[in-house]
């Protein structure tokens, strides 16, 4: 079975607090009509993926620990809806996994790495909101955050 197939059944976990303070704040529940006044993301997996990428880029990896964890969505949700983003997450996990290329046959490792970087990403977002709770109220802030990221040349 391919890695993608094995990942499909796995679930991405996160802290309940992050669900409440960030994911629900910036995502609608699945499948409403898009309008300008709605939340920035239309589905939960989008805000999760966004947090994970922020965690990867800022190299902030925070283990989930125990307690206060909520199982949310299957990896397949990202795969079915996010297309290239799912592949990107796998590649990012590959880049940062201690197991190197062997992680490509270790779906649990891929999941764990993504979870921990997502957790770190949520903490970064949370700290931004603590400084200014209205930071992401304006939709322009999401693009602003993107453009503030530095491109690191290797």
């Amino acid at each position: 079975m391919s890695l993608v197939a094995e990942l499909s059944d796995k679930r991405l976990r996160y802290r309940v607090a992050h669900r409440k303070n960030i994911m629900d704040r910036f995502s609608d529940v699945q499948g409403s009509q898009r309008t300008i006044d709605r939340k920035y993301f239309s589905q939960l997996w989008e805000s999760y993926t966004w947090a994970a990428i922020i965690g990867f880029i800022n190299n902030k990896r925070v283990p989930l620990g125990t307690g206060g964890i909520d199982n949310a969505f299957k990896f397949s949700v990202i795969y079915n809806n996010g297309g290239e983003l799912a592949d990107a997450l796998i590649l990012l996990a590959l880049a940062e996994s201690d197991k190197g290329y062997k992680s490509l046959i270790d779906p649990d490792e891929i999941i764990r790495v993504i979870e921990e970087y997502a957790n770190g990403g949520f903490e970064i977002i949370q700290s931004k909101l603590r400084e200014d709770d209205s930071y992401f109220n304006n939709p322009d802030a999401f693009i602003e955050e993107l453009l503030e990221r530095e491109e690191i040349e290797i």
């Binding site: 993301f41 239309s42 990428i53 983003l85 990107a88 990012l92 993107l146």
Partner: peptide, 18 residues
Amino acid sequence: KFSSLWMLYGSKHLFQKA
């Protein structure tokens, strides 16, 4: 666009690492 590709912006070095 944000939710399909744009949010990856800034991760080029990680893809190189991968």
